Computed example of a mutant assay.
Amino acid sequence: MKQPKLAITTLAVLSALASSAHAQDGMPITVSGFGTGALTMTNSDQAEFNRVNQAGGVGKDARPGVDSNFGVQVTAKWSDTVSFTAQGLVRKSPTNDQFGAELAWAFAKIKLNDDFSLRLGRVGLPVYMISDVRNVGYANTMLRPPNEVYRQVNVDNADGGDVVYQHSFGDTTVTAQAAIGRAKVRSADSNVEFKPVISTQLVVENGPFTYRLGRAQANFGVYDNSSLTGLVSTLNKVGLASVANELKLTYVKGTFTSAGIAMDYNNIIGQAEYAKRKTETRLVPDTSSWYIMAGYRYGKFVPFIVHGDVKQDSIRDFAALPTTGPLAALSAGANGAIKSGLQSTTGIGLRWDFYKSAAFKVQMDRIKTRDGDGYFLNAKPGFAGSTVNVYAAAIDFVF
């Protein structure tokens, strides 16, 4: 079955199950959804712009895949303390240049008391400030979260569970969340397994301000990647075991620590995040990344500006490797494998809430790559260090 048909079938089944359950046993059912219909293009055919976990991107020809998605969420309330939630999501596939369907959430929620709740099943991981709504365009001012930060950890959910604490102290609401589970992220050339992955966050809301601290840690491994496996094997064969040992593929420990703040004060809107990624393998480099967004509300219109950047904290080459002779190609491969995409983005955009549950957005980003191709796909020779403009228009909606 082709991916688009599978995607439509999956969402249809969620809706059908909701209707069936309501009809058979009277269990209260809530069906909601969200989506984005967008067209995205760039001013260059030398490389493709994409978002995290997408196998294909876009060039000069406008395409809907990069920024478009559709989701349906069904919640069944068993009792005052127990409920069940499933969320299906259709978006661009990480394994091929098509749309695919996935079961993003599927959990049972148990309310332990007024402050604590427990969720068991497939739950979203609180990795970023907008983790739960990163795919819900309508919930965000920007058309998309900045790649500079939101590509650093590519896992959205885990099979396991979490505990959430929420309590209000006067005008301040405190939410603490801890999640643990196992996850697998598939791509066109490899699989990454996280077992376990642990993610925690603390969110404090007071008036127009929201403050967040988060940390995720995991043991992970990269599998089924023939090029990386071959590189490590060859380094060992030619006596460069010390270099190979720095390119661990399995049983790798990694952490991601982040802090964020959001503000909606009078007509002023602001949001910022700063994050650091650290791992035990040079194949997933240590990075520091950040962005800041500011906007101003004029009635139903919100013009905004956003800037993001990322830098690599770990070394970008093995200085001891030979650059000439029979091992030059192997050295180039090893040095290329440990380089993270470096780029900065400056974007401007406009959001128009033309309907009570829909918003129209336009956004233009100017992306400057440095010392490589940044986060672009399928770059042609000579692209490194280029500057690319990305244009997008979208309608976000919820129901």
Rank of each mutant, 00 (worst) to 15 (best):
Y165N: 04
Q166V: 15
Q166D: 04
H167D: 06
F169Q: 01
F169M: 03
D171Y: 09
A176L: 09
Q177K: 09
Q177C: 00
Q177D: 11
Q177E: 10
A179K: 00
I180S: 02
I180A: 08
G181E: 03
G181F: 07
G181I: 11
G181C: 03
A183S: 11
K184A: 07
R186M: 03
S187V: 05
S187D: 10
A188S: 10
A188K: 08
D189T: 14
D189C: 00
S190E: 04
S190A: 12
N191R: 02
N191V: 09
V192W: 02
V192A: 08
V192G: 00
E193F: 02
K195M: 09
P196M: 06
I198A: 05
S199F: 02
T200M: 10
N206R: 09
N206W: 06
T210C: 04
T210N: 07
T210Q: 09
R212I: 04
L213T: 09
G214K: 11
G214D: 12
Q217W: 12
Q217T: 14
A218P: 15
A218G: 12
F220M: 13
V222F: 07
D224A: 08
S226C: 13
S227P: 12
L228E: 01
G230L: 12
L231I: 15
V232T: 11
L235N: 07
L235C: 13
L235F: 12
N236L: 02
N236W: 09
V238C: 13
L240K: 14
A241M: 13
V243P: 14
A244I: 14
E246N: 15
E246Y: 13
L247H: 09
K248G: 15
T250G: 10
T250S: 14
T250F: 13
T250W: 13
Y251V: 12
Y251D: 14
V252T: 09
K253W: 14
K253Y: 12
G254V: 13
T255V: 07
T255L: 05
F256H: 04
F256V: 06
T257M: 05
S258W: 03
A259M: 04
A259N: 00
A259C: 00
G260E: 05
A262F: 01
A262V: 06
D264M: 10
D264E: 11
Y265N: 02
N266F: 08
N266D: 10
N267M: 08
G270P: 11
Q271K: 05
A272H: 03
Y274E: 01
A275N: 02
K276D: 03
R277D: 00
K278I: 05
E280H: 03
E280L: 01
